[in-house]
Every structure is written in structure tokens, then in C-alpha cells.
Design a protein around this nucleic acid. Structure first.
Length: 573
DNA sequence: GCCGTTTTCGGCCCGACTGTTTTCAGTCG
């Protein structure tokens, strides 16, 4: 069972305890365990199989360890089943409505017999909700709005899409004289792959005027709440934006606070408490004395920590590293000197080799690997041996005409069901660059998938494993394989792991990158561009690398052309 | 339920907004 599914069960336990009005600390404990499980790189299923002591995982104690073991073995656990029998089915679903928490959900269920979202809508439309204690006409309206929002925005949005939507509102904010400064915080600043909403910090001397100006924008569909400290709006796309107003004197503390993550903040506040200080969005304070607030770094320093890059703020050991001055010097956008995974109209791309080369030069790249599909990927018009030989010849002919860009004649070769590569090995060995990827037969099971990837790594002709887990964010879980085994095979054979920059892939995921980076394996960044503008997706891959604690030297495409050539020589080319 | 520079018990992060209330509970982030 996927870690994410185990985490879902733990979250369900937390939901149900909340509805039962159980201890909020107990709720927090199960949520903490769920969070740990969700972000853990190794399958918990394996750990349970080995009899590992799960209580050594953060926020996992004896109760949740037992629950996890049962969930792995049976798909559920005693505690969850008991809760499900005690709390009416469907009530937990009510909590998904924005504005409805456990208390209201249970109150509505008890008083009106409402068991699911449809019945909730009926009750609200029939004005049966407004008569409940503590509720009124507005509460009823809010529930109906919440139901509509829920339908429109199923889950989180890809960071790439959110960043797109930010561009419109950002241009609007830039044009406003009433604003002294604005900055995006939240999960977008942390480089997460998806975002739930956007947090924008605003500095303005006249907040009412600034607020009027901000809200005068066509993209804004609804003002959810309005205040001079906090104002929330929803765009037509369903994306929620929270504007928070701060003064220059505490902007840094606010930026820290609203960048999160929540868990990182909690760790920092605990740290402050040890000194009998208090950390909030207004600053780090000791009684009435402000210790640090103006800029972010000052708050970290006062807490005895180096400034921590936003991408690392996930409570994955970064605070300890900052304390010991052991934070990695993370890879930067400027470090990347070429793209190592792109397509042309020879297969399913839209642009010619020449156009892709021109786009790479415009972006200041020193090299570009052209890696069209192999024949197995027939829907993309994948190339057979003859077609690929001709294609490689054309790529090299064009390369000969270019003196400031090295075009690598490459391929994205399919890894077949039993681990063989889809093209003749002699031909693959002649190419400059070979990405090997799985596209089909994803359901062969963990052990066979491990064997396939290991076989590709041991083939002697592969440079990097493309989009290794084949996940599709929001629609397909990562395909499971034994990461340690695959990483070891790659490290042994000088093969890299790709971080694919496609917004719905971002594969390897950051948790896998973090787990793999110790073993001496190197990574490649590839946009998998199918048109010239596709090259602009590179920041997504860089963000994943940063979230996986990668330094420039961990990534092959930070090398210059000469060093890259030398490095590739290891496989006899 | 989890955790430990307050270490096996007694704590557990902090503040804003809304809608309903006359001082606050619920929800959210």
C-alpha cells in the first residue's frame, strides 16, 4: 500500500476523533503521524515487513505505529473501524466544505440528520440551517458558497498553474501606487509542486486605499473576507489569494511566518519558547522587547540559526543543519548550463531541431540534448533504428554549423517490460546522450519494476533514467520500486537519475531526491520540452532539486560542455 | 497521542476574521 494511502487512513482517524470531540492533542498526533508517513521516502509497507520500529519515525508513537502496521496488512485498523461505526458515515465529508469545521459539521448532522454533501445543500437551501444555535442566514449562505467552491476546486493546483495566474494579479499589484511592496510567501515560495492558495504580503501606508485598489481587478471573482490585516479573495479559476498587510518593521517576521511550512514554524516557535521568547508574524519578542522582526535572516540569526532557504523549510532536518552551519549550498538557476531532455517534430514535438537549438541559445545554454522517442512509443511516432540514425545525422550536421551551442544527438529510449531497451545497443552506444524511460507496463509490481530500472542502469549505454517514478501529480501515484537498489545500481554504473520538469511530473519527487542524494548518485535536469517555450520549465526541476537538498555539483548539467563530455566518457563513448 | 536543554508527567504555536453574540466560539492558515 502506498504511503499516501496509509496517510489518508491516519488523517481519517484524525478527522473522526475531531468529530467525536476527542482531545485535540490526539487529533494533532494522528495528523503528525500522517504527515510523516506521507513524506517518508521508503514504503512503510516494507518497513512493517521487516519488523522495523516505526516509533523511531518523528511524530509516530506506539498507537499510530500499531495503526500503521494494521493498515498495511489489512487496509484498515481496529481504531479506524471503531470510529467509523461511532461517527455517522458522510459526516467527515462535511468538513471538506470551507468554513465548516468539526463542531458545525457534527451539530448539523445531529440536529438535521444531514449525512452527506447533497443533504447539506438541501438543508441549506430549505433554510433549515439558520435556526440552529449559533447559526444564521449568513452561515447558511456561507455553506452554499463553500459547496460551490468545493465543486469548482477539487484539491490543490499545480504550482506552475498558480504561478501563471499570479502573473496577471502581479502585474496589477506592480501598477498600484498605493502599495509600497508586495511579496509572495506560502508554498509557492517554498517551491512546492502544488499549492492550495497564494499568500501575498503587502506593505502600504494607507491600507484602505491600497485594499480598494487591489480589489479593483477583473480576475477577482469573490471577496471572501475583508480586513486591513487580512483580506481573502477567490479568482475565477477557483484559486484563493490571501493578502496580509504588514509594516516594514515586521515584514521579515511576517514573511517567515507565512512562508511556512506550518511544521517548520512550529519548530521555530518551540525553539523560541525555550528562551522564554515568543515568535509570531509580528516578530521575535521577549516580553515587550522586539528581538528581531525587520528581516527574515535576523529572526533566524537571533534563534541561533543560519538563514534557511524557503525550499528547505519542511521540518526535514533543516533546523538542525542550520544550527550546526551544515546547510547545503543549493543549486541555483544560473548554475544550469544546458537542457538534457527535449523533443522535436521528429516525434511528438512541434518544433524543428533548428528551432529548439535557437531557443536554447536564446536562453544562454551551452548545450542541448535532443532526445526524441524510440519506436515502442508508437503514439508519439517513436523512431526505429534507421530513423534514429538519420535523425542523429541531421542533429550532428546542424551542430557542426553552431559554434556556441553543442547539440547532443540523443534519444529517450523506452525501457521495455522485462528491462530490455527498445533499440539496438550498438546504436545507443554511438549516440551522445541516452535517456532511458519507462512508459508502458507500469503495473508489473515493485520487484519487477526495480529489476527493469536496474537492468537499464547496467546496460552500459544509458546516461540517465527519465522520469523514474512515472507519477502524474493529482492523477497517478508514483510507481513503486526499491529506491535504494536502483540508486545503488545507478551509482555503481555512473548512471544519473532525472528530475523531469514537466509540471505534472516533477519526477523524481523531492522526497526521493533527498533520500537518493547520499549514495553518490548524480542527477540530471530535463524539461522534456516538446516545443521551444517548453525549455522555460527548467525552474520547476531546479525547485525540486533544491527541495531535495541538491548542490550544483550533484547535478550533471551544471558542468560546462568539456566537463560533461569527459564525464560521459565513462561509458566508453 | 507524542515528546523530552521543563525527559516518564505535564505540557502541547499564535493571531485574525466572521457571525453570532453582548464577550465569544468556530474556523482558518
Amino acid at each position: 500500500m502506498e504511503n499516501a494511502r496509509i496517510a489518508d487512513r491516519l488523517d481519517e482517524i484524525a478527522d473522526l476523533i475531531e468529530l467525536e470531540d476527542g482531545s485535540r492533542f490526539r487529533v494533532r498526533s494522528f495528523r503528525g503521524a500522517a504527515r510523516t508517513v506521507r513524506s517518508h521516502s521508503r514504503p512503510l509497507e516494507d518497513m512493517v515487513g521487516e519488523g522495523a520500529d516505526l516509533t523511531e519515525l518523528p511524530s509516530v508513537g506506539s498507537s499510530s505505529a500499531e495503526a500503521i502496521a494494521q493498515i498495511v496488512e489489512t487496509g484498515t485498523c481496529d481504531r479506524l473501524e471503531r470510529l467509523r461505526s461511532e461517527v455517522p458515515s458522510g459526516t467527515a465529508e462535511l468538513m471538506r466544505v470551507p468554513g465548516l469545521g468539526p463542531q458545525r459539521a457534527m451539530q448539523i448532522h445531529r440536529a438535521l440528520g444531514v449525512d452527506d454533501l447533497d443533504e447539506l445543500r438541501d438543508a441549506a437551501e430549505a433554510h433549515r440551517v439558520r435556526d440552529l444555535e449559533g447559526m444564521g442566514a449568513k452561515s447558511e449562505e456561507k455553506i452554499l458558497d463553500g459547496l460551490e467552491t468545493l465543486e469548482r476546486t477539487a484539491g490543490r493546483m499545480l504550482a506552475h498553474d498558480a504561478a501563471d495566474r499570479l502573473r496577471g494579479i502581479g502585474a496589477h499589484l506592480d501598477a498600484l501606487d498605493a502599495l509600497d511592496r508586495w511579496q509572495v510567501a506560502g508554498s509557492l515560495r517554498r517551491g512546492r509542486e502544488t499549492v492550495g492558495d497564494l499568500d501575498i504580503l503587502v506593505e502600504a501606508s494607507d491600507r484602505e486605499t491600497a485594499l480598494d485598489a487591489i480589489l479593483d481587478h477583473d480576475d477577482i471573482d469573490e471577496v471572501i473576507s475583508r480586513g486591513v490585516e487580512r483580506t481573502s479573495v477567490r479568482l475565477e479559476s477557483g484559486l484563493q489569494i490571501d493578502f496580509r498587510f504588514f509594516e516594514a518593521k515586521n515584514f521579515g517576521a511576517a514573511l517567515l511566518y507565512f512562508t511556512g511550512s506550518k511544521q517548520h514554524n512550529i519548530e521555530l516557535r518551540k525553539r523560541a519558547r525555550k528562551h522564554d521568547w515568543k515568535l509570531s508574524e509580528y516578530g521575535l519578542t521577549k516580553g515587550d522587547t522586539v528581538l528581531a522582526a525587520h528581516d527574515e535572516a535576523a529572526v533566524y540569526h537571533r534563534l541561533g540559526l543560519a538563514w534557511i532557504p524557503p525550499e528547505l523549510r519542511e521540518a526535514r532536518g533543516e533546523i538542525e543543519a542550520a544550527e550546526n552551519d551544515e546547510l547545503p549550498a543549493l543549486i541555483e538557476a544560473d548554475d544550469v548550463r544546458g537542457d538534457l531532455h527535449t523533443h522535436t517534430n521528429a516525434t511528438d514535438g512541434t518544433a524543428s531541431i533548428e528551432d529548439m537549438a535557437a531557443a536554447a541559445r536564446e536562453r544562454g545554454y551551452e548545450y542541448l540534448a535532443i532526445t526524441d522517442h524510440s519506436k515502442r512509443v508508437s503514439v508519439a511516432g517513436g523512431l526505429d533504428e534507421k530513423a534514429l540514425r538519420d535523425h542523429a545525422r541531421r542533429i550532428r550536421a546542424i551542430d557542426d554549423e553552431l559554434d556556441d551551442l553543442w547539440l547532443l544527438a540523443g534519444v529517450e529510449c523506452d525501457i521495455l517490460k522485462h528491462g530490455d531497451l527498445d533499440l539496438d545497443l550498438d546504436l545507443l552506444a554511438e549516440l551522445d546522450w541516452v535517456v532511458a524511460s519507462v512508459h508502458y507496463d507500469l503495473g508489473v509490481g515493485e520487484s519487477k519494476m526495480t529489476d527493469r530500472l536496474v537492468a537499464a542502469a547496467e546496460s552500459g549505454v544509458v546516461h540517465t533514467i527519465g522520469h523514474p517514478t512515472n507519477r502524474r501529480i493529482g492523477s497517478r501515484d508514483p510507481v513503486r520500486f526499491d529506491l535504494d537498489t536502483v540508486v545503488a545500481a545507478c551509482a555503481e554504473n555512473g548512471v544519473c537519475l532525472e528530475i523531469n520538469a514537466q509540471p505534472e511530473r516533477l519526477d523524481l519527487p523531492d522526497t526521493h531526491v533527498m533520500a537518493a542524494r547520499h549514495e553518490g548518485v548524480r542527477f540530471t535536469l530535463g524539461t522534456d520540452a516538446h516545443r521551444p517555450e517548453g525549455l522555460d520549465l527548467m525552474p520547476g526541476a531546479i525547485a525540486v532539486g533544491r527541495r531535495g537538498w541538491l548542490r550544483a555539483r550533484d547535478v550533471l548539467n551544471t558542468l560546462g560542455p568539456d566537463d560533461l563530455r569527459e564525464r560521459m566518457g565513462r561509458s566508453g563513448q
